[in-house]
Design a protein around this nucleic acid. Structure first.
Lengths: 336, 336
DNA sequence: CTGAAAGCGCTTACAG
DNA sequence: CTGAAAGCGCTTACAG
């Protein structure tokens, strides 16, 4: 659009070579006289010169840009994680491409390709679970950090929450409230690690001495919408007795569940206790505010960025892979 | 990280010049033999060659990248708008940089500068309201579309909602419910156009014959948090009589208001009717689901992208500026 | 239909 | 402390 100044123009004005201007731009002040530095500084400020980052990237093979690829950007979990990522990256001088795979493995692959073509320096991925091999390959050529969702049997850095701990907190809490039956409601896990982990945690804990007196059941949902959830909730209500409880495996599911309870006129906690994974913004404004397992989403995002950024510059020598696991917390409210 | 193939390598393999490969990459199939085209196609597919977009951008001064700068990315309104933007851009082959100004005018300016340095082709901006002149200048050199928030007295394309219509819908609705007093709760508007428009709409309508029997009051909040909102709500309750109603000017404010009502044990709609701007995901799960003025957020995003993209290629000849205004709708629920 | 060559705006050994 | 020159991977008149 506009004919911007180039390094050549500044060089001419200052009366030095472009090499010197370039050194200045890259902070190599030690290799120029104080006087030169000041003259350059002044001219750049006066002229409002801005280096062209596209050219810098092409030449230096460092774009100072990171691709963040989320399976579904438009859920509160992703949003909070993004906030953490964005803040760290931005404070380290990195710009992020935020990409939404829309829960499609194919789109996830396309996005990764697009991002490599854009010469990003590294990736933070919340994977759809459909590209394990592809992402493993990617991680051989680019710095990659997985966030929220791990890939089994592989050596890729990851940051996620302690799902066993989360489910344990929920079950112990419900137990302490005298529950006699607990249903765990989850989407069919597919190849998505947190879902698998939560389900496994639930079924494992259900077997343990502590919980043998409790009637534990797992309900898997293929489709997550109002109708499907209402159907399950309806069935539950008519089959169970005593003091039942429900654990929902993520925020979206919790929302549908609350709607279903409302539609079926079922009261929480009078008719059924409820604990939801994820502390959504609406949890507090329900008739009975929702007890939740809160993930440190913001910290998860920060941790992911903090893990990736050193990989972007460091010699690929330090190839120690780490899985960071952050603890969830239980926030007790009136639903239990 | 990896030594990628360059156009030169493909040219060598196919046995043509890089110019021909480049023409192929740019879809100029008419200027090469069918046979050449097929050979190139095959080799590229075989080798998994991907053109380097950074180099393409540098040479062609088209980066196929758009900067989206939102005053506050982390509110539901922005999210939905983004979804609309993202979908259109992505389907037109544009990648977007999503930037969060965190409600800081200074950060907004910094981001715009960063994005120009990244050679984006254009901007979609939901402005903080603190950089009117700066953005006006920007719009002289880059294609810019404002979304949600306009800049007064300027010729920049924009897409926003009909705020007068929204407030009218809310007031007529409350009127039809027999309200005798309406309070409009809004953040202090500053230089943010939708806030100004909604406030103006309210005060103007309040004067009209239709509403003269209704006691209309405007309440401005400097700070938007639980305590501040609770304080206002508390005052209101003790001063008013008959059949009062409240209109909240955005989704965030609605959330705090609902919390305040809860804390003060005030029932909706028994003690006070309520209409909120923005149809948030939690509106339906309240004890009394919230009547809202819903903005066509998704369509607003789409419209903004659809307006910007033609500006990216077309000669700057067609300089007709347009302000697209989309209609809001009232969704009646039990809070009124 | 195709190629040689210049150049987009930088960075980086290399030489002094 | 500084500059001349090559080159990052493409695109694009220009010439044939």
């Amino acid at each position: 659009m506009k004919s911007k100044l180039a390094i050549r123009d500044i060089a001419q004005m200052v009366g030095v070579s472009t090499a010197t201007i370039s050194r200045y731009l890259n902070g190599k002040y030690h290799s120029m006289s104080n006087e030169t530095r000041l003259r350059i500084e002044k001219t750049i400020a006066q002229m409002g010169y801005q280096p062209n980052n596209v050219a810098r990237s092409l030449r230096s093979t460092q774009s100072k840009t990171i691709a963040v690829i989320m399976a579904d950007i438009f859920n509160p979990y992703s949003m909070d994680v993004l906030k953490g990522i964005e803040e760290i990256c931005s404070s380290c001088g990195y710009t992020i491409f935020i990409c939404d795979a829309r829960d499609s493995g194919e789109r996830e692959r396309t996005l990764i390709e697009e991002m490599t073509a854009k010469c990003v320096d590294g990736f933070i991925i919340n994977t759809t679970g459909e590209n394990d091999d592809y992402i493993m390959g990617l991680s051989l050529e680019y710095p990659v950090v997985l966030v929220g969702r791990k890939i089994q049997n592989t050596r890729i850095n990851s940051v996620s929450v302690d799902n066993l701990r989360g489910i344990t907190l929920a079950m112990e809490h419900l137990c302490s409230k005298g529950c006699t039956a607990i249903t765990f409601l989850s989407p069919t896990p597919g190849n998505i690690s947190p879902r698998l982990e939560r389900i496994k945690a639930f079924t494992t804990l259900a077997q343990q001495a502590e919980f043998t007196t409790i009637d534990c059941r797992l309900e898997l949902l293929t489709q997550i919408d109002d109708a499907a959830v209402a159907h399950i909730i309806h069935q539950l209500g008519t089959q169970r007795t005593a003091r039942p409880a429900l654990i929902t495996s993520n925020g979206k599911l919790s929302l549908h569940t609350v709607k279903a309870f409302k539609a079926l006129n079922r009261r929480v906690p009078e008719d059924i206790l409820m604990v939801g994974f994820d502390d959504t913004d609406w949890a507090q404004i329900l008739r009975s505010p929702l007890t939740v397992i809160a993930q440190p989403t913001y910290e998860i995002g920060q941790a992911a960025a903090n893990k990736l950024i050193p990989m972007l510059t460091k010699e690929k020598g330090l190839k120690e892979t780490t899985d960071t696991v952050l603890p969830p917390t239980l926030i007790e409210r009136e639903s239990t």
